[in-house]
């Protein structure tokens, strides 16, 4: 449990490879946690992204020794990991659908209503496009959508004012929606 903390500190000290290790660890932890939650049959279980990410955080880090910058790195990794996990599952399911030849009506497709989230895979593609334009915007969207962070938390962990973060969010949001087309 201790070495993620060490790794994050070495990221801060300037070693970028540690970030990859951090990501790998976070990813595997989150996957196990998510799998455990999702395996229950009932349609009522809600999978709270925030809860999962925080669970992973508690499991992996020694919170007392992490400063804001480290935490930011952790959550950025966790958000990316969460995105990856969900996209993997969605792809697997899509493959299954196609393979089985059954035209199942997806939860997300039939509606055009914007209050429902678009297809996860579409968001994934759009995020790649956002990343090409500006990786910082992509990271912001990921952390909000996949790690469930509030703007205030983001302001705190990035060491910026809420007003600044809100403006960045406006940009990120607009860019994401633009790429979703």
């Amino acid at each position: 449990m201790g070495d993620i903390t060490e790794l994050l500190r070495s990221v801060r000290a300037g070693d970028p490879r540690s970030l990859d290790v951090v990501f790998a660890r976070v990813y595997s932890t989150l996957r196990k946690l998510a799998a455990a939650r999702l395996s229950r049959q009932s349609g009522e279980t809600t999978l709270g992204a925030t809860a999962l990410v925080h669970e992973a955080y508690l499991k992996l880090c020694d919170a007392n020794r992490l400063d804001l910058v480290d935490r930011h790195h952790f959550f950025a990794c966790a958000a990316r990991a969460m995105r990856q996990i969900l996209v993997d599952r969605a792809r697997a399911r899509a493959a299954l659908k196609r393979g089985a030849g059954i035209d199942l009506v997806s939860l997300m497709n039939v509606d055009g209503v914007v209050s429902r989230p678009p297809e996860l895979l579409d968001i994934d593609a759009a995020l790649d496009a956002v990343d090409a334009v500006d990786p910082v915007l992509r990271e912001l969207v990921e952390m909000r959508v996949f790690a469930g962070m509030t703007l205030e938390e983001l302001a705190e962990s990035r060491g910026q004012s809420l007003r600044t973060v809100n403006r960045h969010w406006q940009r990120a949001r607009a860019m994401l929606l633009a790429q979703l087309g």
Binding site: T46, L47, A90, R116, P117, L120, V145, G148
Partner: peptide, 16 residues
């Protein structure tokens, strides 16, 4: 889904 702090991930996770 993007603005209201709704946990969009839950819906996807449920779908998956």
């Amino acid at each position: 889904w993007l603005d209201d702090g709704v946990d969009a991930v839950s819906a996807w996770a449920q779908a998956t």
